[in-house]
Computed example of a mutant assay.
Amino acid sequence: MRVLGIESSCDETGVAIYDMEKGLLAHRLFSQIAMHAEYGGVVPELASRDHIRKTLPLIEEVLDAASLTTADIDAVAYTAGPGLAGALLVGAAIGRSLAWALNIPALAVNHMEGHLLSPLLEVPAPAFPFVSLLVSGGHTQLVDVRGIGQYELLGESIDDAVGEAFDKTAKLLGMDYPGGPYLAAKAEQGVADRFVFPRPMTNRPGLDFSFSGLKTFAMNTWMETEQSDQDKADIALAFQTAVVETLAIKCKRALKQTGHKRLVVAGGVSANKALRQKLDSMKGVDVFYPRQQFCSDNGAMIAFAGAMRHQAMKHQEIPSFTVRPRWPLNELSPP
């Protein structure tokens, strides 16, 4: 069975084809970063219009790369949420229309489930059950994962997501958009322990996070310095170290609470080298990540998640469709 996956939840258009027997056949991604950089953030209307321009050409590219035609596709998976409503509607409309024209199933996929399952594309793939740390621009969550659709939310950020905190802190330090990767690169030039930032909510029980205070702490620290390039690097390092250690502390708690020995880390921030080094140093735990190119939004994770659900479910077609800008993981059910 071959599934065509379409991702259009925010500012990246991703298309991929996943074969249940042969694995990932082809994938393509177009990022809108250059367009949105002028505005310092994602402009929803511009994002939607660009998805309209790019999705069909990317589908053609992926089919050509896999030496397939639309007749060789057995199902279409598309991101139905969470995300920007207009951007989601583009992928949903194209995915549903293509599936209807080909008389094949159309599968609405949860974007965060796509991220959560993306490390299963790798070899070796993690086996269920495991704890998942989802870290992206919009989400920071710890999830107890026992199977497809069997998710228990253990903790999440009560304010800024970790990726959002990275981007906002980078912006106040005068870095370009998107700021997270720039801040991480700048941190490599920093002097360790010159500044020590708090590890929020680690001195109390529970698995929730809070990162907005770190952003404020960084701003206050920045205002008290001469604002030199070295000051910027040292603050970037102190901020990143605090975030990484906070995430690691909460991961250890989640693993102890569930009794699991496997940790799966996914989402855009899972590409952060300092985070990977810290989590890899934990003893008695097997840690899994997606490959670097699949940490950010992509069509491969949507095609794969759609294939996993289609394989396990009795599909029932419905003629209409909707999208869910807010769609919590804990509202998903097993197929």
Rank of each mutant, 00 (worst) to 15 (best):
V3N: 04
G5A: 07
I6E: 03
S8A: 13
E12C: 04
G14S: 10
V15G: 05
I17Y: 04
A26Y: 04
R28L: 12
L29N: 13
I33N: 08
L46S: 11
S48E: 10
H51M: 00
R53C: 12
K54Y: 09
L56N: 09
L58M: 14
I59L: 02
E61P: 06
E61Q: 15
S67D: 14
A71Q: 14
A75N: 03
G81W: 01
G86R: 07
G86K: 07
L88A: 05
A92R: 02
S97G: 15
A99D: 00
A101V: 08
L102C: 13
N103R: 12
I104A: 10
A106R: 01
H111W: 05
H115D: 06
H115G: 04
H115Y: 09
L116Y: 00
L117R: 03
P119Q: 11
L121I: 07
A127P: 12
P129E: 03
F130N: 00
V135T: 02
T140D: 09
T140K: 08
D144W: 10
V145M: 10
S157Y: 02
I158M: 14
D159F: 06
D160R: 10
F166C: 02
F166I: 01
D167Y: 02
K171R: 13
L172H: 07
L172S: 12
L172Q: 15
G174I: 03
D176G: 10
D176Q: 14
P178L: 02
G179P: 02
P181Q: 09
A184T: 11
A184H: 00
A185L: 13
A185W: 06
K186N: 11
A187D: 09
Q189F: 14
V196L: 14
V196D: 12
R199V: 04
N203R: 15
R204T: 14
G206R: 10
D208A: 07
F209P: 06
F209D: 05
F211H: 04
F211L: 06
L214I: 09
K215T: 08
M219F: 13
M219L: 15
W222Y: 11
E224Y: 09
S228T: 15
D229V: 12
Q230V: 09
A233V: 04
I235T: 00
A236F: 03
F239A: 05
F239Y: 10
Q240H: 04
A242W: 02
V243D: 02
E245K: 12
T246E: 05
K250F: 06
G259W: 01
R262M: 10
L263Q: 01
A266Y: 02
V269Q: 03
A271Q: 06
L275I: 08
Q277M: 11
D280H: 12
D280T: 12
V285H: 09
V285Y: 03
F294R: 05
C295L: 05
S296C: 09
G299C: 00
G299T: 00
A300K: 07
M301C: 06
F304P: 03
G306P: 00
A312K: 15
M313R: 15
Q316P: 10
E317Y: 15
P319A: 14
F321P: 06
N330Y: 11
P335S: 02
